[in-house]
Amino acid sequence: MYSEKIFKEFRHPKNIGEIKNPDGVGKVGNPVCGDVMHIYIKVGKNKKGEEIIKNVRFRTFGCIVAIANSSLLTKMVKGKSLKDAEKITKKDLIKGLGKMPPIKYHCSILALDALRKAIQDYKNKKGKAVK
């Protein structure tokens, strides 16, 4: 039903939890399956002066694939620039996890939505601070 990668990621998830005083938070849910995902980010700068995701954590109430996705995505974006993190697609995640029933593709979208919302939240806050 699911690939070994999904099982492995589910059994040993990374980056679980919350971040105190996060720079951005993304909270999403899927009304059909009822799953809920929260992603927290802390933003910093790299040597080139680009904004990067210095730390990222998640909490997920959901199926095995949703938890596996949360873990994989947070691992993928940690240390990446915001620009690059925003470029990650559903395809990248699905490729990273391997075989799953198509009915489960939306679990990857859920994770990406949560991340994008967290980044947007950060940008909104920054915009306000500048004003």
């Binding site: 059994r11 799953d35 109430f61 199926c63 095995i64």
Partner: peptide, 30 residues
């Protein structure tokens, strides 16, 4: 606050076979 499918897999890792409800529910999100 927890989800059935995750519990079933973790129980299975401990050698315990349980189910989320009916055997068919793995095919549907509803």
């Amino acid at each position: 606050f927890v989800e059935g499918e995750s519990m079933v897999l973790m129980l299975s890792d401990k050698g315990i076979a349980a189910s989320t409800g009916s055997a068919c529910s793995t095919k549907s999100l509803e």
